Simulated assay, not measured.
Amino acid sequence: MQSTELKAFVVDKVEDIKAKDVVVLDVTDKSNVTDYMVICTGTSNTHLRAIADNVVRSAKAVGIEPLGVEGRDSNEWVLVDLGDVILHVMQDVTREQYQLEKLWSEI
């Protein structure tokens, strides 16, 4: 799956679980680690895990093995690394604190 298709796939899967405030950042010219970052907000720690787990399960179902999943036991931030796309699922407070959209727009 090409990176643009993977980006659309991830956005579709987070929206399936009602993630809030989904933002896609194109970082192809800013990062040699990934092409896109998808950032979204979950309403609770259970919601964070459900969003991340849905993406992981769905990716595996189509033959994409995540490179890593971090923060599953966290109440604030779960990261799913799919190579060309990295998903950040965050609580409102954490998202406001780290402001990834602003950080990556200034690079």
Rank of each mutant, 00 (worst) to 15 (best):
V11N: 00
V10A: 03
D12F: 07
E65C: 09
V78C: 05
T4Q: 12
A50C: 06
S44G: 09
E5S: 13
E5P: 04
K18E: 04
C40F: 11
V80M: 03
I17S: 08
S44H: 12
V69G: 03
D73I: 06
S31Q: 05
R72K: 15
A50V: 08
W77M: 08
L6V: 06
V33E: 00
L48Y: 05
E106V: 12
Q2L: 13
V33M: 14
Y98T: 04
W104S: 05
A50N: 05
V80C: 01
V14S: 02
T41H: 04
C40S: 10
T4W: 09
L82F: 06
V23N: 10
L67N: 10
D35W: 07
K7A: 04
D21H: 14
A50F: 06
W77C: 05
R95M: 04
L100P: 02
D84Y: 05
T4Y: 12
I51Q: 05
K18C: 02
N32Y: 12
L100F: 14
S44T: 13
V62R: 13
V10L: 08
I86C: 02
S74D: 08
F9N: 03
R57S: 11
E65P: 04
D16S: 08
M1H: 06
V78H: 03
Y36M: 05
T46C: 06
V27W: 07
V11G: 00
V14H: 02
D29A: 14
S58A: 15
K20D: 07
W104M: 09
T46V: 14
K102L: 07
T43M: 11
E5V: 12
C40G: 07
V10R: 01
R72E: 10
I107Q: 11
G68K: 15
V14R: 01
Q97R: 13
F9P: 03
R95I: 05
L82P: 01
N32D: 11
L48D: 00
L25V: 06
S58C: 09
T46M: 11
G68S: 15
L103Q: 09
H88A: 02
